[in-house]
């Protein structure tokens, strides 16, 4: 049981990073973006490319960091992948969603997001093949933390958890202590008042996409550290990320973090009592149960 809890916390951290970007976009732009999880795929594959590039030009960078399977090259690659994914998110908005948004058709944006998701998934499949890939072929053994109850944790898992929490703390600091953070919160709360308060909405929308892209790329790389990378990462993660967003309450960044951990832990704990085939249904059950009690999610405000 404690093993499932630990695994759930790790998955929850990854889902939280994905859900933060999704909740910001869903709240500000008032549409359910089903292509958001594909940004994790873009991040994961971009890091794969940059990792090979940095390892190729400077082989010394291919050495692992301490007990982790993560190399210096992959660390640099992750930073580059975050940039690429942030820019990709802005370009997707500029060329697809903005055009529809300008016509005021929110429902069409939802359908367009399905199309964008399929395009990204298939482009990645064409470019990298459908075969699963790994950042590292080295075998990293889990460390036994406890024998009774049995608890095995890989160093990579600890790193991912610490890194994800660190990213969330940085975001928390920005949102709660900086004027830029107030600006983001103001736009999320009341875009029209934000505009008449001198905030240029188009610029903030672009920044929200960039932040969402950066976090999604980090989540994609963290996911890839402990799993295979393949073009359907987005398809596999879209529903848990949506569940985390809805459970936390649309628009609430802190809700998205909590929602990610709830969905991650519940999905893993469910494996103790349910056959693994039922695992994908768990996020839906959590959504249904929570929305019956709190229709706006844990921290969400009623939409106006």
């Amino acid at each position: 049981m404690i093993q499932s809890l630990a695994d759930g916390v790790l998955v929850g951290a990854i889902l939280s990073l994905g859900a933060i970007g999704l909740t910001m976009v869903m709240h500000m732009l008032r549409f359910a973006n089903f292509s958001h999880a594909e940004l994790l795929s873009i991040g994961a594959y971009s890091a794969l490319v940059f990792d090979a590039f940095f390892s190729g030009i400077m082989p010394i960078l291919a050495t692992t960091i301490g007990p982790l399977s993560m190399t210096w090259a992959l660390t640099l690659a992750m930073l580059c992948a975050m940039g690429v994914t942030g820019i990709s998110a802005v370009l997707i908005d500029r060329f697809v969603f903005k055009r529809i948004r300008d016509k005021g058709d929110e429902l069409s944006m939802v359908f367009a997001s399905f199309g964008v998701a399929m395009i990204i998934r298939n482009v990645l499949g064409l470019a990298f093949g459908l075969k699963s890939q790994l950042y590292s072929n080295d075998i990293v053994f889990a460390v036994m933390i406890s024998s009774d109850p049995l608890l095995l944790i890989k160093p990579d898992q600890v790193f991912v958890l610490v890194a994800a929490i660190l990213i969330m703390l940085i975001l928390h600091y920005i949102l709660s202590r900086t004027t830029f953070g107030y600006t983001l919160r103001a736009v999320a709360e009341n875009p029209s008042l934000a505009a008449v308060s001198g905030i240029r909405l188009s610029r903030i929308i672009a920044l929200i996409w960039i932040i969402g892209g950066l976090l999604a790329a980090a989540a994609g790389v963290f996911y890839g550290l402990n799993n295979h990378i393949n073009p359907v990462i987005g398809r596999d993660l879209v529903l848990p990320i949506f569940a985390a967003t809805i459970v936390g309450g649309i628009g609430s960044i802190y809700g998205a973090v909590l929602g990610g951990f709830i969905v991650g832990i519940a999905s893993n704990m469910a494996l103790l009592v349910l056959p693994s085939g039922y695992s994908p249904a768990v996020p839906f059950m959590i959504i249904l149960a929570l929305l019956l009690v709190r229709p706006n999610g844990l921290f969400g405000a009623p939409q106006t």
Binding site: Y182, R185, A186, E189, N190, S192, L193, A194, A195, V196, S197, G198, I199, R200, L201, T304
Partner: peptide, 27 residues
């Protein structure tokens, strides 16, 4: 554009929802 108002020396107080409720007064 609405966000350019201040540059022209104009301020607008909407009828409702004219403050950011989730920010402090100072913020």
């Amino acid at each position: 554009r609405p966000d350019q108002m201040a540059q022209y020396g104009i301020a607008y107080v909407p009828q409702s929802d004219n403050i950011f409720r989730t920010l402090t007064i100072r913020q």
